[in-house]
Design a protein around this nucleic acid. Structure first.
Lengths: 252, 252
DNA sequence: TTTGATTTGATTATTTGCAAGCGTTTTTTA
DNA sequence: TAAAAAACGCTTGCAAATAATCAAATCAAA
């Protein structure tokens, strides 16, 4: 009863984009406003809709209205990301050369990282600023146009840049993953940058918190077989894990 | 709902130091200005932030604690630098392409700058992060090795990079100046970068607070005749001023 | 049926947005 | 340069929306 109604609300909202409580009351004439309110609350907790004053809107719709601010993004699934970042930080050895992307997970990694003598390349300026506090780390920033939503830079020229530099490990994260589409992100130039990066790296470590699974973003930059190690959290589905292990990928 | 929002505001302010109501409205797109005002009021009552006209700032920002090398530097001759930065900020027009260095004065300039539609190139990542808060400014970061003392990047490849980009104005500052040695800095690669930059720029604006006069640093990157406009403070010596004006340089 | 848990609706308290009015800063004009 | 005008930001009162609480209804399993 409840379950069905909630599903129906979610569907309608996905279709219409945005609805007022009043409109919802018309759709469900023999359910009280209170109940509908509670349904919306639950849907919001599940991350399927955004509640706004007077009603609710689908997640897609809200992205249209305003590009997700960087600071907002950092609050999503924080705990899982920190755990993943800690695991990844342990993989960086003294003296190694590492590429790190500019995402929020990489940001946590920078915070957790020990102050080892090593070389880090990154396209995230927040990451670079965080790392700058560590005395021993040698940091190189990949230049380009700055995207304000995730504070990372990307440029077509970066590809040429990678030709002149060497690194063993690339540690990156994706904003979406499905077995069919692979790892994807929201920015075409960034996708190209990561592809060039992977060609250069001997090993690719992917940090992927479980909330990203099943989502699809416009630009795929890697498929399952492109990565060597997957670092994830405890909620990672078992069938996915098997899928990776079948491809000889270490899952942490 | 309210509690969460207030916590988030506090966090963002801790991170950014200072924010206008307008910026907060962008972060919380479906919350009215009124509500944000009230949240700030409550946060101020709790002693977590300080409200200022047009917005609010974190308590830390007010105290301006000195810790890292960078922040220490920012305390030297702060007032003069802010005045200079304000003057320089007024020189940037809508639609213009500007190169900005990564120094502390440029940092103040970024803070003071209005949110105009324009393109800014910089080699300072702190500058880039500051500018990232402005919606309309298109930012490009010049990549390279990161120097931890001033959070700016430099690389020999930047020279080639300038060949592919265009800008009208270069706004830079020096850490030392004498009439004989010209403008100098502490880093050879940065000096080279600035030299290439000047070749490309139609106009060079130099921001120089009077405390820098008479000092010499190892690497000269510009002589008096290389610049077009000098922006300085009230303590600038008169004989120096005459010297610049003899070279047809505008002194502000 | 009975018991316990969950869901629902009604009531009350709190939060929110709008609009009007007040105070401050900035710009205009003489 | 100063007074006047305009623009901008801040506060207040009020109506509407929302959250919290609690009791009734419904459901599930023994």
């Amino acid at each position: 009863m409840k379950r069905e109604r909630i599903e129906e609300i979610a569907e309608i909202l996905d279709k219409r984009g945005k609805m007022s409580l009043e409109q919802l009351e018309e759709v469900f004439p023999n359910v009280s406003q209170m109940t509908l309110r509670r349904d919306l609350f639950q849907l919001e907790e599940d991350g399927r809709i955004i509640r706004i004053r007077g009603g609710a809107m689908s997640v897609k719709e809200v992205q249209k209205v305003s590009g997700e601010a960087y600071t907002q993004k950092t609050t999503i699934n924080t705990d899982a990301k920190i755990v993943i970042a800690q695991k990844a930080a342990g993989l960086i050895d003294e003296g190694s050369c590492v590429f790190l992307d500019g995402g929020t997970t990489a940001m946590y990694l920078s915070k957790e990282m020990p102050d080892l003598k090593c070389n880090i390349f990154t396209n995230g300026i927040a990451v670079a600023m965080e790392l700058a506090q560590k005395k021993n780390i040698n940091i190189t920033v990949v230049g380009g146009q700055l995207m304000k939503d995730n504070l990372s830079t990307s440029s077509p020229a970066a590809k040429a840049y990678f030709d002149t530099t060497n690194f063993e490990i690339a540690i990156v994260s994706a904003t979406a993953f499905t077995p069919e589409q692979g790892f994807s992100c929201n920015n075409q130039i960034e996708a190209e940058l990561l592809k060039s990066c992977f060609k250069k790296a001997r090993q690719v470590y992917m940090m992927l918190d479980s909330s990203k699974i099943g989502k699809i973003n416009p630009y795929t930059f890697a498929r399952i077989e492109d990565i060597d190690v997957l670092i994830t959290d405890d909620n990672f589905p078992k069938d996915c894990k098997r899928l990776f292990e079948e491809n000889n990928i270490v899952v942490m």
